[in-house]
Simulated scan of single mutants.
Amino acid sequence: MNYNLLNIPERTTKPRESGLTMVMDKGLSIREVEDLLDVAGDYIDMVKLGWATSYVTPKLKEKLQIYREAGIPFYFGGTLFEAFIVRNQFEDYRKVLDEFQMTYVEVSDGSLEMPHDEKCGYIRTLAQQATVLSEVGSKDAEKILAPYQWIELMRAELEAGAWKVIGEAREAGNVGLFRETGEVRQGLVKEIIHSIPAEKIIWEAPQKSQQVWFIKLVGANVNLGNIAPAEVIPVETIRLGLRGDTFSHFLNAKA
């Protein structure tokens, strides 16, 4: 840090199990990635190449090498996984993971109807090849899961070999964990946290109000995902109680 301040929440250090910041790369250029890592690389734990943007992103291997050299893990969005599955190309997908030297992989069923046993089978298989993150929740705003269903799905996917489970919110933060307005489904989240260890969950929270809510609920070292590149530094200040939204929250509390 650039100077000393007292009563700042203690942040975990890389490589960490909690306090993760996952950034959404929706097609950044090589120059944009270099600039992002120059200013915010210390606060980025992993990068998701949003949905299937990697299919059309130019100079993809060169860009991934920049992340790799910076020691920041990256992975394809779960929608790309689903695009291969719906076309009966699972083995082709595994070859793509090898070709691009992917050490992390996301398994999801947010756009594709899939029996849960089948999804867990993919998790078990891919866990032998890479570190698996599995996404729970639908991208369809009309498909509402009861809290007990979220918990059962998360437990099963962790048992199948997922390193972390991701709470679905989409890029906009208006489905899954959230209402259409972006408001957190507070009862749902609290029931999940009561049953699933907080460090095993990455909460997609692209909106500032959502980030603030999770940080106040779980603490400075909550795992947050789908953070926009320009919001990495602002999110870190929210974690540290250095933005108005959490300014007083950590002064007399232990993070």
Rank of each mutant, 00 (worst) to 15 (best):
144 I>Q: 04
230 A>N: 11
119 K>V: 09
123 I>P: 04
243 R>W: 02
29 S>H: 09
228 A>K: 12
95 K>A: 15
85 I>W: 08
28 L>H: 03
93 Y>G: 04
32 E>K: 13
14 K>F: 05
32 E>P: 01
208 K>N: 00
27 G>N: 06
188 L>E: 01
9 P>K: 05
221 N>T: 00
146 A>W: 11
34 E>P: 02
91 E>G: 03
115 P>I: 05
172 A>D: 09
140 D>I: 07
75 Y>V: 04
86 V>W: 08
13 T>V: 15
32 E>S: 10
138 S>H: 04
70 A>H: 15
190 K>R: 14
137 G>T: 01
115 P>S: 03
97 L>Q: 11
254 K>N: 13
238 I>G: 04
176 G>P: 02
147 P>F: 05
180 E>M: 07
188 L>M: 09
22 M>F: 04
116 H>Y: 14
104 Y>C: 02
3 Y>I: 15
7 N>P: 08
224 L>G: 03
97 L>C: 14
10 E>F: 11
8 I>R: 12
171 E>L: 09
177 L>I: 10
23 V>L: 09
35 D>F: 10
88 N>T: 08
8 I>C: 08
137 G>W: 00
244 G>Q: 11
174 N>I: 13
240 L>W: 10
75 Y>W: 08
209 S>C: 10
207 Q>V: 07
150 W>E: 01
205 A>V: 08
244 G>I: 06
211 Q>K: 03
90 F>D: 12
237 T>M: 12
249 H>E: 12
223 N>R: 01
247 F>L: 15
11 R>Q: 10
110 G>T: 00
144 I>E: 03
252 N>H: 13
187 G>C: 01
97 L>T: 11
246 T>K: 02
88 N>F: 06
147 P>K: 04
60 L>Q: 13
76 F>D: 10
2 N>F: 12
209 S>T: 08
107 V>R: 03
135 E>I: 00
92 D>F: 06
126 L>E: 07
66 I>D: 07
46 M>I: 07
57 T>N: 11
104 Y>M: 06
236 E>Q: 13
109 D>E: 10
59 K>S: 15
58 P>W: 04
107 V>G: 08
6 L>H: 06
140 D>H: 14
113 E>W: 05
251 L>D: 11
146 A>M: 14
42 D>I: 05
146 A>I: 07
226 N>C: 02
5 L>K: 01
34 E>N: 07
178 F>M: 07
141 A>I: 11
192 I>G: 08
136 V>H: 01
239 R>W: 10
208 K>Q: 07
133 L>V: 09
51 W>G: 07
219 G>Q: 09
38 D>I: 08
120 C>W: 01
3 Y>K: 14
78 G>D: 04
239 R>N: 05
86 V>L: 06
160 A>Q: 02
176 G>C: 02
203 W>R: 00
22 M>D: 07
36 L>N: 09
76 F>V: 08
158 L>R: 05
31 R>N: 15
131 T>G: 02
255 A>S: 15
35 D>L: 13
92 D>E: 14
253 A>V: 11
1 M>D: 08
217 L>S: 11
111 S>H: 04
131 T>F: 02
164 K>R: 13
71 G>F: 01
103 T>W: 01
210 Q>D: 04
81 F>P: 12
29 S>Q: 06
134 S>P: 14
214 F>H: 00
253 A>R: 15
244 G>M: 11
128 Q>E: 15
115 P>T: 05
